[in-house]
């Protein structure tokens, strides 16, 4: 089976005026379809940059990223955008909901983008809100929801179109442990259904849910293996919210 994501020699440098800050150094990484990959590492090591570059949100300075066989950085912006809409879902630490749209309107956006009919989109969105425990608040706007509720809407939005890959950047960073477990269970559930997940996290509990763990430091991948082995948890289970020592 060919990898769903295959990054070769990916290099990324941030430039601010005359100052250059290397963020990724010739990264090589392959992710198989259906994998649940956690990326861990200290702050500033390049985890989020890796996610952005692999997903095509950000440009790279060198190397190539093949997503489902296509070099995503060689695509035109429009094609890359279309690819994201059809095949990817995103969850961020700060929920990034559209404040002027209701919960259900936020969730149905990706479906409408891919041309799903409005009635169908609404029904599927309501179902997903139900799955994340928000069936009672579909018409509330983001600023009328709690942080946990907002993140559940964001998760529902990322998953509703059943994307091939879900990119999650600290998805439980703003949630309490109960809420974090609920979100993780949902991610686990979609992964079990065959969707690929790459999650950037500081949280050992989340990493323990993953099959594979990639550790980064200073823009390099320093470890890549089974999560259970790298975390040393044996059964691979720890409570979300516990963190590895940096």
């Amino acid at each position: 089976m060919s990898p769903i994501v295959d990054a070769r020699g990916v290099t990324k440098v941030y430039r601010t005026g005359a100052v250059e800050v290397p963020a990724l150094h010739t990264i090589n990484l392959s992710i198989e379809p259906g994998e649940f990959v956690a990326v861990m590492g200290p702050s500033g090591c390049g985890k989020t940059t890796l996610l952005n570059c692999l997903s095509g949100l950000d440009d790279i300075d060198d190397g190539a990223v093949m997503v489902e066989g296509a070099d995503i950085h060689k695509m035109k912006d429009g094609d890359r955008t279309e690819h994201r809409a059809g095949r990817m879902g995103f969850i961020f630490q700060s929920f990034n909901l559209i404040p002027v749209l209701t919960a259900v309107e936020n969730v149905e956006l990706p479906l409408l983008l891919t041309g799903v009919k409005s009635g169908v989109a609404r029904e599927r969105s309501l179902n997903f809100l139900d799955r994340v425990g928000l069936s009672h608040r579909p018409k509330h706007k983001p600023n009328e929801l709690s942080g946990g509720e907002q993140q559940r809407v964001a998760v529902a939005r990322a998953l509703v179109s059943e994307p091939a890959i879900v990119w999650a950047d600290e998805p439980t960073g703003n949630l309490d442990s109960t809420m974090a477990i609920a979100v993780l269970d949902l991610l686990q559930e979609v992964n079990d259904a065959g969707q690929t997940i790459l999650v950037v996290t500081h949280d050992d509990g989340i990493a323990a849910k993953a099959q594979r763990l990639v550790r980064m430091a200073d823009g390099h991948i320093v470890a890549d293996g089974l999560a259970a082995e790298l975390l040393g948890t044996g059964n691979g289970v720890s409570a979300p919210g516990t963190r590895t020592a940096k």
């Binding site: 997903s55 949100l57 912006d77 429009g78 955008t81 279309e82 690819h83 994201r84 809409a85 059809g86 990817m88 995103f90 961020f92 700060s94 990034n96 909901l97 559209i98 404040p99 956006l109 990706p110 983008l113 891919t114 939005r157």
Partner: peptide, 15 residues
């Protein structure tokens, strides 16, 4: 800005 970024991440074309 951030909301636009999210929309673009979700696949909203720039158009």
């Amino acid at each position: 800005r951030r909301q636009i970024g999210m929309l673009r991440a979700m696949g909203f074309p720039s158009r």
